[in-house]
């Protein structure tokens, strides 16, 4: 597997693939934020997520890519879609997508982006090239040894979120 990967990475096609994926991802992101139709926005999100999954693949994190697709696209996105559906007014062309502060928000975002980029630039030394991908076994072992606490906490968070969501979204009692 390693060899195949190395071969893939070194290949210029792989490089092209990266740029493509990057472009798709970013385009999808733009689509998410700028589309008036919320449903379309969700679809663009799907695109973006898939793009990110692809990038994961490119980076050798196959498990993560799968998880991304399964969970993010498969569950979270669906959830969002449910939400979209449940809260009507999805196809109202009169309603603009962005609010009054869009420009200011753009500015802030740009500044933040620029600042982050500066940080990246200032970094002492970025590693030159990719290293061997992390075997899945390491990931799994890590989850149940070193990171078992965050893991358990995460499960608690999820439970809490579920319970909380049920409580919040529950229809009001008639007592």
């Amino acid at each position: 597997m390693t060899d195949a990967w190395l071969l893939t990475v070194l290949s210029p096609m792989a490089r092209a693939a990266f740029y493509l994926l990057a472009a798709v991802t970013l385009a999808g992101a733009l689509g998410v934020t700028l589309t008036r139709n919320l449903f379309h926005s969700a679809l663009w999100l799907a695109v973006t997520l898939l793009g990110v999954a692809g990038l994961y693949l490119y980076l050798g994190a196959e498990f993560l890519a799968v998880v991304q697709v399964l969970i993010y696209v498969g569950a979270i996105l669906v959830l969002l879609l449910f939400g979209v559906m449940l809260t009507a007014r999805i196809a109202d062309p009169a309603v603009p997508a962005l609010n009054r502060h869009a420009l200011l928000a753009a500015l802030v975002a740009l500044c933040t982006g620029w600042a982050l980029r500066l940080a990246v630039r200032q970094a002492a030394a970025l590693p030159a090239g990719p290293v061997a991908p992390v075997p899945l076994e390491t990931l799994g072992r890590g989850l149940v040894t070193t990171y078992v606490l965050p893991f358990e906490v995460l499960s608690l968070i999820l439970i809490g979120a579920l319970v909380g969501a049920v409580v919040i979204a529950r229809p009001e009692r008639r007592s």
Partner: peptide
């Protein structure tokens, strides 16, 4: 970073 920036922008300016 680009993704982050776009996401930030969206979070700040999406009405829905």
């Amino acid at each position: 970073i680009g993704l982050f920036a776009i996401g930030l922008f969206g979070a700040l300016s999406r009405r829905n």
